[in-house]
């Protein structure tokens, strides 16, 4: 179940050529990484274009229209432009930190995809601690933001970096508690098993009243905060901090932050789909189509938030997390535990 059909075929072919097991693993996982990387690059490009289109239509505009059909080439062209731009490093920057920050952000964003099941059998590695791994890896993003804030040697960037560290740490807690209530029911940390435990539509965790929808909403709010999007986009609040942690970045390094942000948003939606919306499960259509449909629907919701809400202030943001979300998610976890224990709704 670990590797998809074509990949499995490749794996067996390689194994039959008589290479040592180590080489077979290295080659096959490199290929898998490349496939995931390519897929995510396309997804990120698509999401950038999609966000521009969605925001445009929410605001009664057209958005990009000139490059290609409804501007679909726009992000690709933008990417080419960003690659060609001069890479500026501020004179007073802490060079190694400044240099590595976007790379850390980029890598952390992509590493999460090791354990996300894109469809039945479409997973790079079904770790038995899958969801724990994802939580651990995505937290790396904070380090990159702090590095960017510190390394730029700019007050706005530093404020942005500090804000984001405080914010991501605060929202990690309710998010993990919301995830934990699902894990409690599934009885496993493995992403595949979590998906398999919700085979029928009424088994989706979002429909398991009363804890499911609450956990989902907490997850969505915390996820929005984790991916630094409006109404929680304080680290890059344009009107206060100009651009926050990435104010000094330009060219390709900026593009890496930008890409990481969109990949993170996709990660949040993908985990949400896996945990609450039955993952790849669904009738008639192939499993990966279901997965993509559900994930993109969640991405749409995140974008919808962004283009509708104003932004919170930093102390209100913290208050909301610690004084409201955290107690609610704890109470929710207790309810979930009691439901599990009393076998109530335990289908």
């Amino acid at each position: 179940m670990e590797i998809a059909g074509i990949f499995k075929y490749l794996y067996e072919k390689l194994a039959s050529t008589g290479l040592s097991q180590a080489w077979v693993d290295i080659i096959s996982y490199s290929v898998a990484a490349l496939i995931v990387f390519g897929f995510l690059a396309v997804v990120a490009l698509f999401l950038v274009w999609w966000e521009r289109k969605i925001s445009a239509h929410i605001q009664q505009r057209f958005g990009p229209m000139r490059t290609g059909w409804h501007g679909w080439l726009q992000t690709i062209v933008d990417m080419l432009k960003l690659i060609q731009k001069e890479d500026i490093t501020p004179a007073t920057a802490d060079r190694p930190v400044f240099y590595w920050a976007p790379i850390v952000a980029f890598v952390a964003a992509f590493m999460a995809y090791v354990t996300i099941p894109f469809g039945a059998g479409l997973i790079v590695s079904d770790l038995n601690i899958g969801i724990l791994y994802i939580i651990a890896i995505t937290t790396f993003t904070i380090i990159s933001l702090l590095m960017a804030g510190w390394g730029s040697n700019n007050k706005y960037a530093l404020l942005g970096g500090m804000r984001s560290a405080a914010q991501v740490v605060s929202y990690e807690v309710p998010m993990v508690l919301a995830i934990l209530s699902v894990v409690l029911f599934a009885g496993s940390l493995s992403m595949v098993q979590i998906v398999e435990s919700q085979a029928k539509i009424y088994q989706w965790y979002i429909f398991r009243l009363p804890f499911g929808p609450i956990a989902f909403i907490i997850y969505l709010i915390a996820g929005t905060a984790e991916s630094n999007r409006t109404p929680f986009d304080l680290p890059e609040a344009e009107q206060e901090l100009v651009a926050g942690f990435n104010v000094e970045y330009s060219g390709m390094k900026f593009a890496m932050f930008f890409f990481a942000e969109f990949v993170n948003m996709f990660t949040i939606a993908a985990i949400g789909t896996t945990l609450f919306l039955g993952g790849w499960q669904g009738p008639w259509l192939p499993s990966w189509v279901w997965f993509m449909l559900k994930t993109l629907a969640l991405v749409f919701v995140l974008m919808w938030f962004r283009w509708t809400f104003p932004r919170l202030r930093v102390d209100q943001l913290m208050e909301f997390s610690w004084k409201f979300l955290l107690p609610v998610s704890f109470a929710n976890l207790i309810i979930a535990g009691w439901m599990k224990y009393s076998k109530w709704f335990n289908w």
């Binding site: 605001q59 009664q60 409006t230 986009d233 283009w307 104003p310």
Partner: peptide, 13 residues
């Protein structure tokens, strides 16, 4: 004003 408080859409409205 709405733009300054982070809501982009009212600006265009």
């Amino acid at each position: 004003t709405s733009l300054d408080l982070g809501a982009v859409t009212p600006f265009l409205y």
